[in-house]
Design a protein around this nucleic acid. Sequence first.
DNA 1: AGACATTTGTACGTATGTATT
DNA 2: AAATACATACGTACAAATGTC
Lengths: 87, 87
Amino acid sequence: MQGEPLGPEAEIDHDAPLVPYRQLAQILTARIHRGDWQPDRPIASENQLVQEYGIARSTVRRTIALLVEDGLVYVVPHRGTFVQKPE
Amino acid sequence: MQGEPLGPEAEIDHDAPLVPYRQLAQILTARIHRGDWQPDRPIASENQLVQEYGIARSTVRRTIALLVEDGLVYVVPHRGTFVQKPE
DNA sequence: AGACATTTGTACGTATGTATT
DNA sequence: AAATACATACGTACAAATGTC
């Protein structure tokens, strides 16, 4: 039935056709849409995501850059990454 | 008199207030405006810039990402980084 | 004031993958 | 087949800003 879960329980598969930073983007996008984090509230810190998904921080940052491009989040230096308000 | 040269002879100063990837951005921007590379022609490769300016490839890539944001260049995977045509 | 932890920013080096020439 | 060039990913280190105590 279902493919990969996209919640907090999702895992990164280094052998999957989709590269890890894009897998994480799908996971975080799903979590945001699901409401794991509210608008203008911070998502998990980079280091938390590193530990949670077992990937390098540089990979996490690559993912966040993608989410910023997509307009899903915004970064406040030294504060955190926040969920963008809809519209 | 003059500050830092911004041509091919320019060097990266790791002690300067401006971080290296932004210094390189200024240098490459000046070189493009000066006509070192023509529109739709490739600029120096990442590895060439690494050797020419003595910085890490990741730093060169950070600079190129900035130039892409600025609309000065565009990247063709496995081909090179090209000067954007004006307008 | 000062110390401390947290968080993002920058930079390095290395390795491997994939596409083009 | 080989060289070139960009893409991705890892790990490490230190800097700078913020917030808390």
